[in-house]
């Protein structure tokens, strides 16, 4: 299965804005990564590890799926029996 049709998007920019215009550097310091990594995640150029993803969600005090969305064809979803 090709990876191209699937991708992870995120709402970090709007969450930062809602959190009192938090800067990328401030978020990076809270999460424990570099500002460049926050920038890469925000620009959908890098998918973080689960640990970093959970830490970002914890900073904004929202569930993980409010921060990250996994987009792709519906065919990939398992059908409940």
């Amino acid at each position: 299965m090709g990876k191209g049709a699937y991708h992870v998007t995120n709402a970090i920019r709007s969450l930062r804005f809602r959190a009192g215009d938090m800067t990328q550097q401030q978020l990076a310091d809270l999460v424990g990564v570099t500002r460049q990594t926050v920038n890469a995640i925000e620009g959908n150029k890098y998918s973080p590890s689960l640990e970093v993803a959970f830490r970002i969600a914890r900073v904004f005090d929202v569930p993980l799926e409010h921060v990250f969305q996994y987009e792709g064809p519906e065919a990939g979803r398992a059908t409940p029996r």
Partner: peptide
């Protein structure tokens, strides 16, 4: 002063 590296590095 920010000499730290992370998982992406």
């Amino acid at each position: 002063r920010r000499t730290e590296t992370d998982e992406r590095d």
